[in-house]
Structure formats: C-alpha cells, structure tokens
Write a protein that binds this DNA or RNA. Structure first.
Lengths: 185, 185
DNA sequence: ATCAGCATATATCGGCCCGATACGAATCAA
DNA sequence: TTGATTCGTATCGGGCCGATATATGCTGAT
C-alpha cells in the first residue's frame, strides 16, 4: 500500500486536510496497522490533484494559516476501488524490543526488567485504549461497520495476548538469565 | 535499528556472508520481527569494513562464485554493545490485510471470505513453524538461551491469538456484511 | 536428455518513504 | 512572559526496498 492509496482511503471516508490525514494514521482509524508521514502525504496529495483524483478547496477562515481541504472526485473513488482489488502484501512487524530481548544475555538484568515492564505497559494501554473506543461506539447506538469492528477487535485481542505473554514470562526470563550468569561467569 | 546495527547483530553470533545475513531475516532467528534487503545489507557491510568493525575473508572454493565471509573485530563487538544500549524505537506493525478488511463493505463478500481464510492459514502456519523449531530445540538437549526462548514464544503466542480471533470472528463478519447489504441495497 | 527454475552469491540503481526541519500563528500552562 | 503544544503546509537529505544484472551448479519435470 503506497501512500497515494492510503490517502485515497482516508479521503474515501470524507474530505480532509493533509494534517488530518496524518492524524488518521496516528490516532485515527488507521493507527496501529498503517502509517504515513508528512514527507510522503503532501507529495501524494499533489499527485492526486494532478491526476484528477481529488480537488482541493482553500479555507483561509478559522485561525490564520490557509488550509487546503481535499475531496475525492469520481475518478478518485474509482481508483480507490481498483486499489483495494489488488492483492495485499504480506503483513510485516518490526520490533526493536524483541530484538533487544533476543540479546537479553548481553544486557544488564535490571535493564531487561525495565524494558519488559515498559513493553507490557505499552501493549496493555494500547489494548485498553482501543477497547474503550469500541465500548464507546457500542453504547453510542450508532451503526456498527462489520469490517471496522473486526479490525479494532483484532487490535485489542492481539495487544492483550502480547501483554499477557510477557507478564507470564517476565519471571522465567529473569531467573533464566541469572541462572546462566551464575553458571558462566 | 538501522541495517548496520542489524548486520552487527547477525555477525555477533558468528561469521557470515551477505547472503547468509539476508537469510537470517528471512528464515533465520530474526525473521518475523526485523528485516533487511540486499540493497541495504551490502552497503552496510562495506561501511563496517571501512570503519574497522569487521574483516572479510574471500572464499573461492565451494561452488564457483566467490564469497566473502565477514567476521566482527573487537571494535565491531564493542559497537554492537553500544548499539543495544540505545533506547529502542516503538514497535510497528503494518497490515494490508487489516486495511482491506477495514473496507470489507466495499469488497465482494466472497473475496472477503477468501482473504480472511488466507490470513488465518498464514498466521496458523507461521505459529506452527516457530513452534516446531522450539520443540526441536527443546528435544535436542542443547542449552536454551532465555532471551531467544522468550522471543520465539512471543511469536507463537501472538500468531495463535491472531488466527484464533479471525476463526472466531469470520462468521460474524460475513453475516454482518450480508445483513448490511440487505438493508442498504 | 534437456531445459526451466531455483539456490547460491555479490552488487547497483531508481524511487519511495521517513524524520528532521523550516515557516507561521494561536492558545494554553507555568 | 515565555516555553510548549496544537494546527497547518511544505521540502530535503538520507535510508531502505525491490528489481535487476551477472554467473554457475543442481534438480526435477517434460
């Protein structure tokens, strides 16, 4: 999924500025499983305009700095449907934390403990946050989109599983580490 | 974690060629949570040589094409320890599958079903594969590194949780989708 | 038997994308 | 009052991926 497609996706859900598109990947609906930076969003939006997939409307009103609100054209909507017809790439996960824990033997045990605690806290709070958004949407009485519901539930489940695993294995890791250092050093 | 550090990590575990380093991220110990391509590995290795962090030995023997076996120097080993002393970046996950499922409403239901089935199959087989490597190592009687054990267990647990969630929610998603299309179209 | 395809092996190049940075102002907390 | 944070657009350097080039030996289908 290139950033052009990602912008198409956000704009498919309604008009937005470049800044708002960024937020959709930071705290919005696409957070946790897709991302894009300003350095790729703004050029992508320019290209969308050039290709006639979107139109921009300048709003100078509110604060002071001009803002450009982008909206998809029919061409853009068609391009989005074409894009989601393509075969998806494999999921990818990148974790510096697991990388460091892999080398736990090479780190001071107290650092390993701190690392794993931060990891647990981070995953737990992310699960809680998504979960609170879900219950909020449930109680709001608004209509629930099955796709979005599945995706957010996936996030809760997987983050929880990750946190639980680390809670269960924190002790064993630390004691395994100390046993080894007793034997080897 | 830049590719230079990643190469340092692989070489820390023993000498290797560029090709073997790539494999460490494809099927080796770092698969699933870190990655690197040839386009970044070879330049990184050149830099490692230039910085005196590694030395290369040419082997022309075996097949026909020359291979360069890289080995870390003391400087390299020190650089690696310095690198793992740094603060890790946040974990990141990117999933085209979840992106597509988010837009399930915009896709033909049979495609959604196929997509989710492939997803389940992929996650299940990855969990099984890591798990078989773990039982193999357990029964081999060789010493078990606590860090690596934790990391591989994490993979099994999280992949299983993801697959289980999708198995449980495949039906509800599909029926939710058909209910909606009845109501709206 | 032959030939396509894959594994081994090194290397480069175009292009995409991130992170930092610049610019500018308003609002809010210390 | 002054530093931080939010809103907002935009570029630039550098890092990294994916495709491609090059070369050869092995293996399994036809």
């Amino acid at each position: 999924m290139d950033v052009k497609t990602l912008c198409l996706a956000v704009l498919f859900q309604g008009e937005a500025t470049g800044y708002e598109i960024k937020k959709a990947f930071e705290e919005g609906p696409f957070a946790h499983f897709q991302r894009a930076s300003f350095g790729s969003i703004y050029p992508a939006l320019s290209k969308l305009l050039a290709d006639g997939m979107a139109v921009a409307e300048a709003h100078e009103q509110d604060g002071r700095p001009d803002k450009k609100v982008y909206r998809l054209t029919q061409t853009g909507r068609a391009a989005f449907h074409r894009a989601i017809g393509q075969e998806p790439e494999h999921d990818q996960f990148r974790s510096d934390m697991l990388f460091l824990l892999y080398f736990a033997r090479e780190l001071p045990p107290d650092r390993v403990a701190a690392l794993i605690d931060r990891y647990i806290e981070s995953y737990s709070s992310q699960a809680d946050h998504i979960d609170s958004c879900r219950t909020e949407r449930l109680t709001s009485g608004a209509e629930i989109d099955p796709g979005r519901w599945l995706v957010s539930g996936f996030g809760v489940e997987v983050y929880r599983a990750a946190a639980d695993y680390l809670i269960r294995n924190r002790g064993p890791l630390l004691s395994g580490l100390s046993k080894h250092s007793q034997a080897a050093e």
